[in-house]
Design a protein around this nucleic acid. Structure first.
Length: 874
DNA sequence: GCTAACGTTCGA
DNA sequence: TCGAACGTTAGC
């Protein structure tokens, strides 16, 4: 951060005396107190632009921001493990670093309570108002350039040149109460718009010792190096150019967004790339390039004091438009030799992504749950070769401005069209202007409208970047979920808490299966063909977790999935800042274009959404901001299914976190330990975790004190999972924080444990018996070491499993004999015993068991050697 | 006055 | 360019 800051500082100060500063000479402090204010340096530019009240506290002296105290990070307790915690005296450190715990770094630092408007000297007054426009005008806004804190209203009514008043304030989405004030904007100042902290998490997440970021740095650094040198000079030039450029009207704002190349063809200076984006690249690296690509031109929202600030349904449209303009700019730039380092960076990243995309396309079936969505996706896919998600949509929409939105929307049986068309109509644009202007005007207007009152603004700020990710994630999730074949084993997912709205998806494995099922199984002949010709890897992957012993090649499960050429981004998720869902609750009503709210409340919409598949939800999320939030309601995503998804990307992880599923299926993925660790640390409500076919290395991420209290754990065919590993898994975590000595296993609440195909012995069973007192369903099929003695152990007097076990699967356990059946008679709650394909179990023994048990509990042979309690449906 | 920690500097 | 250090602010 320090470096980015300094780079920006130089840019920002390039036309001031600061410019003369000798290298390495300490910069004047930018302290907040008036006593230490170096106003001379930092306010000079402001002062020259606009006359300011002389009593201002600190023109140029930025107020230190402080915790919001509300965000997820703020309400956490210190982890006690991070670099900064270890430095703290309370954790036995020297206390020199004086930094907040990594896990507690506020994502939306706010202005201090003592901050006041430099014009009127009063604090923010938005709380006293209801009207959203008024709220904005009455809240304190800190200019990221001149650091002035003002009420927009005070600026509006202040003694400013009319041109300045006409200038747009540019709201910074990244930080609450942050903008580029109309004065600075009018003066053409740019530069450190995003230099301000996005929260310490952004500052340090990538810098942590041991961060995998470092692995990526060399290449990136190489890419970025070049532009550093020219920053200063070019920024000066840019500034002078800008100052020569006549000020554009607000209606022209979209076109005013600077192209990547200046009209003169000079490379746009790096300094115009908002600093936070550079930082974000560190955080999200290439995953975020779409953010960069778009946000580098639209991280801020133009605003004019006299304009209302009404959120509209047109958000999505607006974003598309913005993106479209971005795209045009990018295309424009593509015609030029890439000279700007940022672009170079971006291109490189883009190439990587395209590469990944190609790979993905090779293996992913096309969308198909909705016919038109299929078309939509086709179009998208064509575009995707060159453009990322957002941009591709724009491409798709190019020349179809009058259209409501994506074609898919038309096919979602939700009567949104009128809303959408209304909001995309150019009604509010100056009628005298050409059609293009008419199109741009709403865009600018919508940008302004995105401005929200403080809490909503914060929420929007938090969610905006996330939304970008999410929109990608939606596709990833939806695409990856398109794995054909196989119906999800019913198993204990059915037991998951029925908190979901969606009866259709949560219970049956999500909309994926539903969508696939609904479309019929024969729709992907190409894939089917591929599967039929499957390699052993594919065989293994498409082998249903549900036991179907016939034809099973015992050796096949031992063939590991080919290590997916893991995208470099996979290892970068450490850089993902934890961004919790927006703090404020999602809006209860859908804002319409005319400023009113849609009649249906959120819950009604959610009921509708609950009937959609995940894929369809992903489409809906692209409609508008409100829908985006609504569709992310965790009730709609109780079950997230990524099984057989070859590569889990950071964006997918972010998407998972945002949705906070109860059930997460990562079976047969190549998820890494770090990824899984990252996930489970952020999914405290996770109850069902399916990791069959993963590696023990990844699964070992569960050996932590932050492991959620799972009820279902599927570890079938986990490579390398044997007795010692089971011991690690079942033992109480050793990474408890000081004073947090929980000696119980984190898996103590597991009721459904699936261990099929593992080379575990009785020693693991003893641990299970000891540490899983409520275990009800146990799948030990294909466990060659399981024998009668194992059953004896499980059903021995004094064990909890004796009474808790209801369903035991010992199919294809060749060491199990008839003797086991006699042990099972001890189990008071047993309802189902699966002994299919146990060579040493005879049908006669089963019948004898049934006969003897019938005195107490009636059993039947549902299949050969499959004993099922009558009237029970385990 | 104390603690937490933000924002900056500076050495490596 | 990064990370450690620390002055100083903000909150209580």
């Amino acid at each position: 951060m320090a470096m980015s800051l300094s780079a920006d500082d130089e840019d920002y100060d390039s036309d001031t005396a600061e410019q003369q500063r000798l290298p390495n000479r300490p910069k004047p402090k930018m302290a907040a107190s008036t006593a230490t204010t170096p106003a001379a340096t930092t306010s000079s530019s402001t002062a020259t632009a606009v006359k300011l009240p002389s009593n201002r506290t600190s023109s140029g002296a930025r107020r230190r921001r402080t915790r919001c105290r509300k965000c997820e990070a703020c309400v956490r307790t210190e982890c006690g493990e991070c670099h900064f915690c270890k430095d703290m005296k309370k954790f036995g450190g020297p206390g020199r670093m004086k930094q907040s715990c990594i896990m507690r770094q506020c994502i939306a630092p706010v202005l201090p309570h003592t901050a006041v408007c430099v014009v009127c000297g009063e604090a923010g007054k938005e709380d006293t108002l209801d009207d959203e426009d008024e709220k904005f005008n009455a809240m304190l806004m800190e200019c990221s350039i001149c650091n002035e804190i003002v009420h927009p209203n005070c600026l509006k009514s202040g003694l400013l040149p009319i041109q300045v008043k006409d200038a747009a304030g540019v709201v910074n989405d990244e930080l609450p109460n942050c903008w580029e004030c109309p004065k600075c904007n009018y003066a053409g100042k740019t530069g450190k718009a995003c230099k301000q902290k996005r929260g310490p998490g952004f500052k340090y997440a990538s810098n942590l010792p041991g961060s995998l970021l470092r692995e990526q740095k060399a290449g990136r650094d190489g890419r970025e190096e070049g532009d550093q040198t020219s920053t200063c000079a070019s920024s000066i030039k840019r500034k002078s150019e800008r100052e020569e450029t006549p000020r554009l009207k607000t209606e022209d704002l979209p076109s005013r967004l600077p192209p990547l190349l200046s009209p003169s063809g000079l490379p746009r200076p790096r300094s115009e790339v908002p600093n936070f984006l550079r930082k974000k690249r560190k955080l999200f690296d290439d995953d975020e390039e779409e953010d960069e690509a778009s946000a580098k031109k639209k991280p801020k929202k133009p605003w004019r004091p006299e304009e209302p600030l009404i959120p509209k349904l047109s958000h999505m449209k607006t974003e598309e438009e913005e993106d479209n303009s971005d795209e045009e700019e990018e295309r424009q730039e593509k015609q030029e030799p890439p000279r700007r380092s940022f672009k170079k960076d971006y291109s490189t990243v883009r190439k990587e992504e395209e590469h990944e995309k190609e790979r993905r396309e090779e293996r992913d079936p096309p969308f198909r749950s909705l016919k038109d969505f299929n078309n939509y996706r086709k179009e998208e896919d064509q575009e995707e070769e060159k453009e990322d998600d957002d941009e591709e949509e724009e491409e798709d929409n190019n020349g179809k401005r009058g259209r409501n939105s994506s074609p898919a929307l038309k096919n979602i049986s939700l009567s949104l069209e009128s809303d959408a068309s209304r909001c995309s109509s150019p009604r509010a644009g100056p009628s005298s202007e050409g059609s293009e202007t008419q199109e741009k005007a709403p865009r600018a207007r919508a940008k302004r409208h995105r401005r929200k009152p403080p809490n909503r603004q914060l929420s929007a700020e938090l969610s905006k970047q996330l939304n970008m990710e999410i929109r990608r994630t939606e596709h990833s999730l939806a695409n990856e979920n398109q794995q054909p074949l196989k119906s999800e084993p019913e198993d204990s997912e059915n037991e998951e808490p029925k908190r979901g709205l969606r009866n259709g998806t949560a219970g049956n494995g999500g909309g994926v299966e539903r969508g696939a099922g609904g479309e019929g199984g024969g729709e992907w002949p190409h894939l089917r063909a591929r599967e039929m010709n499957g390699t052993s890897w594919e065989l293994r992957h498409f082998y249903p977790p549900q036991i179907t012993p016939l034809g099973l090649n015992r050796s096949s499960p031992t063939i590991r999935p080919l290590p997916a050429r893991s995208p470099p981004k996979c290892v970068q998720m450490e850089r993902h800042v934890i961004r919790p869902p927006p703090i404020c609750p999602p809006p209860d009503r859908l804002p319409l274009a005319d400023g009113r709210n849609h009649i249906a409340p959120r819950e009604a919409w959610l009921t509708i959404f609950s009937h959609l598949s995940h894929r369809e939800l992903c489409v809906c999320m692209r409609v508008c901001r409100t829908w985006n939030r609504w569709c992310c309601d965790k009730r709609l995503w109780t079950h997230i299914d990524l099984k057989r998804c070859k590569s889990i990307t950071p964006l997918m992880l972010s998407g998972i976190i945002r949705r906070q599923p109860i059930t997460l299926d990562l079976s047969w993925t190549n998820i890494s330990k770090k990824q899984l660790s990252w996930l489970i640390n952020r999914l405290p409500g996770l109850r069902v975790l399916l990791l069959s076919g993963c590696s023990w290395v990844a699964v070992s991420a569960l050996c932590t004190s932050s492991c959620p209290l799972l009820r279902t754990l599927d570890l079938q065919w986990v490579e390398g999972l044997k007795d010692p590993q089971m011991r690690d898994l079942l033992s109480p975590p050793t990474d408890n924080r000081p004073g947090q000595m929980d000696t119980r296993s984190k898996l103590r609440n597991v009721t459904d444990l699936r261990l099929a195909g593992l080379d575990i012995t009785d020693s693991s069973l003893r641990l299970i018996i000891k540490n899983m007192p409520v275990l009800s369903r146990l799948d030990l099929s294909y466990c060659n070491h399981i024998n009668d003695q194992s059953v004896n152990l499980l059903t021995a007097a004094g064990t909890t499993t004796r009474d808790s076990l209801t369903d035991v699967n010992l199919s294809v356990c060749n060491r199990v004999t008839d003797q086991s059946l006699s042990y099972f008679k001890r189990c008071g709650s047993i309802c189902r015993i699966d002994l299919r394909f146990c060579k040493q179990v005879s049908r006669q023994a089963c019948e004898r068991f049934i006969a003897e048990m019938s005195v107490i509990v009636p059993f039947q042979l549902q299949e050969d050697k499959l004993l099922q309690k009558l009237h029970s449906t385990p």
